[in-house]
C-alpha cells in the first residue's frame, strides 16, 4: 500500500512514521478495514427487516381480530423479555436444523434415519453455511429482535396520527385499507422517527455480535491482529496489543453513533416540514 505512494510524499515522513504507516496498511489490516462491510450490511439489512417486522407487528397489535392481537402482543413481549444474544444465536441454529431436518428426510436412507442417534442423521444432510448465509441469517435475526422494538415504536406512532386526518380520509370515501396505508402509515413516520432512531442505535451496537455467528467481522479481526505476534525468524513483532485494537473499535462505534444522530436529526427536520408538531410552533 505504502509503496504505491510517490517518493516525494513518503519522503515527508520520518522512518518511524513510515514503518507504522506500513504496518497499519499491510494486507491483514486492509482485510480488517474491509470487514467493516459485514457490520454495515448487517446493520442496514437488519434495519430493513426490522422495519418490516415492526410494521407487521404494529398491524397485528392493533388488529381487531383477537388471535392476531395476541400474536402481536406475544411477539413484542417475548422478545423484550429475553436477551437479544439468545435470539441472535437461536434463530440461525433453529433455521439450520429445520433445513437439515427436511434435507435428511429426502436424502438419508429411511433405515439410517430411523436408527440415527446424532444430528444430522446422515452426512449428506449436513448443511455447511457460508459467510453469506450467516450474514443473511444475522440480518433476519437482528430484524426479528429489533422488529419487536420497532413494532412498539410504530404502534405508538400510529396512535399519534391525528384522528381528524383519518376521519377526513374516510369521509372522502377511502376504504379502511386505503385509510390505513395512505394516511396512517404515511403520516406515522414523523412520530416514529425519534423512536426508530433509538432502535437503529441499538441495532448498530448489536452488530458487534456478528462474530458469534462465525462471521470474520471487525471484532474478530481486531482479536486476530491484536494478539501477540511472534515469528521464530524475526522474534516478537509486538506483544498483546488487543486493547489498542478494541479501543479503536470503541471509538469507531462512538463515531458511528454520532453520525447516525446527525443523520436522524436531518431526517427528522426534513420529515416534519410543514407539520405542526409539539414544540415546533
Amino acid at each position: 500500500m505504502l509503496e504505491t505512494l510517490p517518493d516525494w510524499l513518503s519522503g515527508l515522513f520520518s522512518e518511524d512514521v513510515r514503518s507504522s504507516l506500513a504496518y497499519i496498511t499491510n494486507g491483514k489490516h486492509l482485510a480488517w478495514y474491509a470487514s467493516i462491510r459485514f457490520t454495515l450490511i448487517a446493520a442496514i439489512g437488519g434495519a430493513t427487516v426490522a422495519v418490516l417486522f415492526g410494521l407487521v407487528g404494529a398491524a397485528l397489535k392493533q388488529s381487531r381480530i383477537m388471535p392476531f392481537k395476541l400474536i402481536g402482543d406475544f411477539y413484542t413481549t417475548i422478545v423484550r423479555g429475553v436477551p437479544d444474544v439468545l435470539f441472535i444465536l437461536f434463530f440461525p441454529l433453529a433455521f439450520e436444523q429445520a433445513v437439515e431436518y427436511f434435507l435428511a428426510r429426502s436424502v438419508c436412507e429411511p433405515e439410517v434415519l430411523a436408527a440415527a442417534t446424532q444430528w444430522p442423521p446422515c452426512e449428506a444432510a449436513q448443511w455447511f453455511l457460508t459467510t453469506t448465509d450467516y450474514l443473511i441469517m444475522a440480518c433476519v435475526s437482528l430484524g426479528i429482535v429489533y422488529g419487536a422494538f420497532a413494532a412498539n415504536v410504530i404502534h405508538g406512532a400510529m396512535q399519534a396520527v391525528p384522528k381528524g386526518q383519518l376521519e377526513a380520509a374516510a369521509a372522502y370515501g377511502f376504504t379502511p385499507r386505503q385509510v390505513f396505508w395512505r394516511f396512517k402509515v404515511r403520516q406515522m413516520w414523523v412520530y416514529a422517527l425519534p423512536g426508530l432512531s433509538n432502535v437503529w442505535m441499538l441495532l448498530l451496537k448489536a452488530t458487534s455480535l456478528l462474530s458469534l455467528l462465525q462471521i470474520a467481522d471487525i471484532v474478530q479481526w481486531a482479536a486476530r491482529l491484536g494478539s501477540a505476534n511472534y515469528y521464530s525468524r524475526v522474534g516478537l513483532v509486538h506483544p498483546d496489543w488487543r486493547w489498542k485494537y478494541y479501543l479503536v473499535l470503541f471509538v469507531f462505534f462512538i463515531v458511528m453513533t454520532m453520525l447516525s444522530e446527525r443523520f436522524f436529526a436531518a431526517l427528522q427536520a426534513r420529515a416534519s416540514r410543514g407539520m405542526s408538531l409539539a414544540g415546533s410552533d
Binding site: S208, A223, W243, Y246, F250, T257, M258
Partner: peptide, 18 residues
Amino acid sequence: RGSPLFIQFFMFYSMMLA
C-alpha cells in the same frame, strides 16, 4: 451509551491483561 457492551468487555479485559 454509544458503544457496544460487547466491545467494552473485550476492551477492559484486554486492558487488564496488558
